[in-house]
């Protein structure tokens, strides 16, 4: 199951390279699998992406606005 979980997380990093979460989860998994070098790489990447994400959030003022603004631009109804 570990390898299947790793494969899924790696697929997320491929599909959504800006997402920090899969790197965090990969880091945790690798650590439990005692692959410490890989764990370090993934957790470092996580920190980088999380910092970028925080900066982006600040620019967008709030998480809510991220969702709301596209709603006004493109109403569904």
């Amino acid at each position: 199951m570990n390898q299947k979980a790793v494969d899924e997380y790696l697929e997320v990093t491929r599909l959504d390279p800006k997402s920090a979460v899969p790197h965090y989860r990969l880091g945790q998994l690798y650590r439990e699998m005692n692959k410490l070098d890989l764990a370090t790489t993934e957790l470092t990447r996580y920190q980088e992406l999380a910092r970028l994400h925080q900066e982006e959030l600040k620019r967008n003022r709030s998480t809510i606005q991220q969702f709301i603004i596209p709603q006004t631009a493109k109403p569904d109804n």
Partner: peptide, 18 residues
């Protein structure tokens, strides 16, 4: 197949089943 949220959730599920 290009659905990141589903892959992420599935990964978490596989990890939970270890």
């Amino acid at each position: 197949p290009d659905f990141p949220a589903a892959h992420l959730e599935l990964g978490a599920l596989y990890a939970a089943r270890r």
